[in-house]
């Protein structure tokens, strides 16, 4: 489809990820104390971005809170104190890898494996879901800038390789050939 402005950017981003999960009947309390710490916990299937964090919810009464990298486990330790008696807070910074796919064809690339309806009407900015892509678990978050993908660390390379190859098969953007398309592939650990 020549003539169509196409771009795709795939970046790995480092962030601290803490999962907090409410004990039975404690979700409302947990939401209150989180709000007290300046974090509004979103409803199921939603994500809320603030200047210093992103909170999302893809499992009932469980939230992922992404913050810029700090000392290992520091964020989890803070949340463990917040959650005491109400739930659990676990550091998943190493367990999940974050990728961000931006550009006009981002969703077109994703539907090569994503079985979720990614139409902007069905999956608008602020939506979040957990699903399976290329046989591995993936959490998708629709951001204004693109789609954030969280995938288990052990399969992150597999997922990344598939994204790259799928984008190429797409015909739009072999990274070395297409002007204006940027693909950073080097930061993957």
């Amino acid at each position: 489809m020549p003539g169509k402005a196409l771009s795709l950017r795939l970046e790995t981003s480092a962030s601290d990820i803490v999962e907090i999960a409410a004990l039975r009947g404690r979700a409302r309390e947990l939401e209150r104390v989180a709000l007290g710490r300046g974090v509004q916990l979103p409803a199921l299937g939603r994500a809320l971005a603030a200047t210093d964090h992103l909170a999302l919810c893809v499992r009932p009464e469980r939230w992922l809170i992404l913050t810029p990298p700090a000392a290992a486990g520091a964020s989890a330790a803070v949340w463990q104190a917040v959650c005491a008696g109400l739930g659990a807070a676990l550091d998943l910074s190493s367990g999940l890898n974050a990728l961000e796919l931006t550009g006009s064809v981002a969703r077109e690339v994703l539907v090569r494996s994503c079985r979720i309806d990614l139409d902007p009407d069905a999956f608008p900015v602020g939506a979040a879901c957990a699903t399976i892509m290329v046989q591995v678990p993936v959490i998708l978050v629709a951001l204004a800038s693109g789609v954030l993908l969280l995938t288990p660390a052990s399969t992150a390379r597999h997922f990344h390789e598939w994204l790259m190859s799928s984008a190429k098969t797409f015909g739009f953007m072999p990274p070395s050939h297409l002007n204006g398309a940027a693909v950073s592939d080097d930061q993957l650990s």
Partner: peptide
């Protein structure tokens, strides 16, 4: 489809 060759099944790699 696309899930062939190196994409046939996921490879899990440790840190």
């Amino acid at each position: 489809g696309g899930e062939v060759r190196q994409h046939l099944k996921p490879k899990r790699r440790g840190p």
